[in-house]
């Protein structure tokens, strides 16, 4: 397992206390799992994601990721409607382990309240959480 100093935590995205990341892409937001989360879970074997068109509030559980011997829920960093899901994960869930910030993304959403973005953590604040 990686030490905190070994984690890849990009500057240009935001984080949640429940270890999701969020990235603005125009008017939508892409969501995935942080390097810390994927490392803690170990080899991911299955990812369950919502259907396009489903809506959730901030903090709602929208799916889960499974390793061989654990299941972890994933939560909405901000509220919104799901506009895309990463279909690749159906056949290659290991992308979440390999490239959590690129090919391993989970969903893309259209935020209901764009202001919720501001409450998300930046890298420094997330690091504080991890060390906490």
């Amino acid at each position: 397992m990686k030490e905190i100093s070994e984690l890849n935590l990009p500057e240009d995205i935001r984080y949640t206390k429940t270890h999701e990341w969020a990235k603005k892409i125009g008017k939508t937001i892409k969501v995935g799992l942080t390097d810390y989360a994927q490392n803690q879970l170990g080899d991911i074997v299955f990812v369950e994601l919502p259907k396009i068109g489903e809506s959730f509030s901030k903090g709602d559980e929208f799916g889960n990721v499974e390793s061989v011997k654990a299941v972890s829920e994933i939560y909405m960093p901000v509220g919104g409607e799901v506009v895309a899901v990463n279909q690749e994960l159906e056949s290659t869930p290991e992308l979440v382990n390999q490239n959590p910030y690129s090919e391993g993304w989970l969903i893309e959403l259209k935020p209901t309240h764009p202001a919720e973005w501001d409450a998300l953590l930046d890298k420094a604040a997330y690091l504080v959480e991890l060390k906490g």
Binding site: F46, E66, S67, V68, K69, A70, V71
Partner: peptide, 12 residues
């Protein structure tokens, strides 16, 4: 596929 089972998912 043990993640379906009680010893991992407990009440779920």
């Amino acid at each position: 596929l043990a993640t379906r089972e009680q010893h991992i998912r407990r009440e779920k």
